[in-house]
Design a protein around this nucleic acid. Sequence first.
DNA 1: TGACATAAGTTCGATTTACGTACTAAACAT
DNA 2: ATGTTTAGTACGTAAATCGAACTTATGTCA
Lengths: 258, 258
Amino acid sequence: MSTTEQDRNISSSFAKGLAVLAVFDAATPSMTLAEIARRTGQDRATARRGALTLVQAGYLRQQGRMLSLTPRVLALAGGFLQANQFGRRVQPVLNQHAAKLETEVTLATLDQGRVLLLAQSTTERGIVTYGFTAGAHIPLAHTSLGRMLLACLPNEDAERAIIQADIPKHTEQSLTRPEAILEQIDAARSQGFSVTDSEFEPGIIGYAVPVSRPDQTPVVVGSSAPRGIDAGRASQRLLQGLQVCAAELRQTEAVNDL
Amino acid sequence: MSTTEQDRNISSSFAKGLAVLAVFDAATPSMTLAEIARRTGQDRATARRGALTLVQAGYLRQQGRMLSLTPRVLALAGGFLQANQFGRRVQPVLNQHAAKLETEVTLATLDQGRVLLLAQSTTERGIVTYGFTAGAHIPLAHTSLGRMLLACLPNEDAERAIIQADIPKHTEQSLTRPEAILEQIDAARSQGFSVTDSEFEPGIIGYAVPVSRPDQTPVVVGSSAPRGIDAGRASQRLLQGLQVCAAELRQTEAVNDL
DNA sequence: TGACATAAGTTCGATTTACGTACTAAACAT
DNA sequence: ATGTTTAGTACGTAAATCGAACTTATGTCA
């Protein structure tokens, strides 16, 4: 008879606790209890129980009044990475193409209205971009990876995602009108690749092509590089290289239906 | 009056749910509900609530009756990796030394009586070993990484860890007597490095040196390579290279007190 | 086909657990 | 010294979890 109709199959305490764990991201690597409570929208006492449970389980660490993630969270990801043979099948492919194309190559999928980086080639040289790693989130609207991912979806889903996303102006070149972005996504869908220029990081051109087959979970590979002199020829070469990389990844069967 | 005195600061439902998430590892990448219940030791109904909550939160995926991890678990690890600047500071160092030494280089720490791989250099060539990735667990007793990690601990802690660990005979060469293994750990402690030969993977020699300073959380770097002809000279070169690598990692301050 | 084994879904009352308010105390900043 | 943010504690109540028992579905072997 109460207003709160509760699904008996779902453990609400558990869901709240997970929200506490998920609130630790790149922007806020360590937080106080009060901050956790605020960001999760939970009562302070509730957030405290969740956080202390995570400390006891070894996923959070308490130093003074600050809480931060422990390496143990990596073990959770390890299950996924090993199940899909990222070490053996995916990473070597990315590295080979990265070396050949002399850029970084990134594998990504959709997650919660953002791009989730799944794997990143690592070259011998330092890292060009922000130093994103697997598990990092980047925006959908202003990256080649994001637009290509949206282009893998039915039109209406892509529209919904863009409308719901907030569109900050990362750089001077960032497109801000949703219609303009959707046009780019349409173009990516028909062309089979997407390119963005300085819309997220100034001076960086990003490329992306699809890996997933239609009706699978969208997965894409991309690369970003500083805008060079001979951008046209470089584009051709990069896009062709990425297409080959995507084809090889499809053959590994490792990234099918993530 | 009941026998179970319960800490009001800990959410037991949450802890049980976390146990469900943690049960997905390399050995069992996808499981049925009944299997989860068995492996967590939880009641079937309890395990079911936990698993369904994880599905709703997007960390598990249900295909038929099998449950498996989704890429979203990577986002949890992403928080840790970005907080400690693995992409910018750690990975480039590992890659550089891997290229120079022509092996793989692995960064690892202790977790739950096993070695937890934190990061792995990736060369352009394929991967030599099993294809372990960050987040993977390998045994303490028979790997150079594990012995070096234990050598970072006080003697009594190392002894306790070895006694509690089960010591399977992975290869013909695997040491089985706890005393013999502890001797090796002592040697590693006084020498400042550890070497194992074919005790985990046949024909592979592993090397490891400490990264963490005394009284910090143990962290080590290591590398493994097939046993070559000129093992002696190669050892010298590898160990020196790893020492330099460890020193550089210390300077980054990224892996201090994980 | 039938019998058996394993897995999944459902129900429900008793009990435990988590909730959140209210209060105290400590740390910090102005 | 004063206001502000944060943490820890306590506890009555409301709500969620527990787990046993049962039913249904799926798959397996003779």
